[in-house]
Write a protein that binds this DNA or RNA. Structure first.
Lengths: 212, 212
DNA sequence: TTTCTTTTCGGCACTCAGTGCCACTAGTCT
DNA sequence: AGACTAGTGGCACTGAGTGCCGAAAAGAAA
């Protein structure tokens, strides 16, 4: 902690030529212009002014390019959940976190829309994204597990992880279909479906078994 | 329908050398023995006694090999749902379909277990599987949409698709962790979580709007 | 300044998945 | 036999991703 607050840590060695964000933007531009499959990694590297080999040091795969710095977003979500007061029920906390996680500055919204359009429609990206989603689910299930006092690998927290992911992506699909729709509203609608459950017969409120 | 009931339709042209199922079995054997990444497509082709080029006519990608004939399973599930009496509520019908879909003859269970172990743990397969899962979700959301009288792309059916997929996979994860667990029981537990919903405050039973 | 050390850069060569092309093989039908 | 049809597989090619290694660019020490 003594070296994390240095303003401009004068690092050793050569300075990086570019940033993950820069490369990601250049790549997205090309993907939107010519399509994901039609764009080669060499194209991206050339457009970004770096060598192909260097690009693969910034991003482990072509499919990671549209994601940018996802790990940073996950950290923010984790922090948001940790900061949530324990009096807030698990589902409410997660509902708020989902909304928070998908809030973007107005000028970034069209850009984000195009990005998600690719991620949810290009087969190679759909496939690869599931690995990112797994990390996201882990954040959710870790939180739920902590609150429920069970292992993060148990049935309930993992199901909660899946179910919130599903609701979020279902909301995104709607959002992408309609230019005038509001992502946050859709997310809230989807989470509401989770809340009420899918039981056709109204279920009696479950009373925690005493002494279990 | 006049040619679908011929006992041995004397086809034209050369007879296929092998079957999807055969290749899939051979591949799975090698994947379990040496690992998925360590096994090349050439290895599989050689072991199956066919050319590499031929293998890619039976399966569009290496990652499809462990899935075998998934389309056939989907068709069975679709048929099961269509045959379900309309008096059975949507969620019940889906719960039964999920169970039906994951029922295997006893002798195939250990084999299925290893297969799912690969599919849920090898990153390349995890990624690719999401494309198969999308087809599965489509079966679910089509059914739900039909029952609810809305488009299959609408928020509710797609959410139902996601949520049932999530519950199923959460159950599978538990099953794989414990040799003595029962997949069907776990699936039912997971679906029960969906039924009751995740609302912390008991939600008033939703009465269907009369005349809607 | 020179030299040392550290870090990034990127060329080269390689493996492997997946594809288009095309000739070959093994069957059925006249 | 000859025509037709469908499966096979070799060959060559593209493109993603990796290991290796020397070059470039920075700070630190001499």
């Amino acid at each position: 902690m003594s070296d994390s607050d240095r303003p401009t840590p004068p690092r050793m060695g050569r300075q990086p030529l570019t940033t993950r964000a820069d490369i990601s933007h250049v790549a997205l531009q090309l993907f939107l212009e010519h399509g994901f499959e039609q764009t080669t990694v060499d194209d991206v590297a050339r457009a970004a002014g770096i060598g192909r080999r260097t690009l693969f040091r910034y991003f482990p795969s072509k499919s990671d390019l549209p994601w940018g710095d996802f790990e940073a977003k996950l950290s923010r979500m984790r922090a948001f959940l940790v900061d949530t007061d324990v009096s807030v029920p698990v589902v409410d906390a997660l509902a708020r976190a989902v909304v928070e996680f998908n809030q973007f500055p107005l000028e970034e919204v069209p850009y984000h829309r195009e990005r998600m359009n690719l991620l949810l429609n290009v087969p190679a990206l759909v496939a690869h994204s599931s690995l990112r989603y797994a990390e996201w689910r882990r954040v959710v299930s870790d939180f739920a597990a902590g609150r429920l006092g069970v292992s993060a690998d148990a049935l309930e927290p993992t199901t909660i992880g899946w179910v919130f992911l599903g609701a979020s992506l279902a909301a995104y699909e709607q959002w992408l279909k309609d230019d005038d729709s509001d992502l946050i509203e859709l997310l809230e609608s989807a989470v509401l479906l989770l809340r009420v459950g899918f039981s056709p017969i109204p279920v009696a409120p479950v009373r925690p078994a005493v002494g279990a």
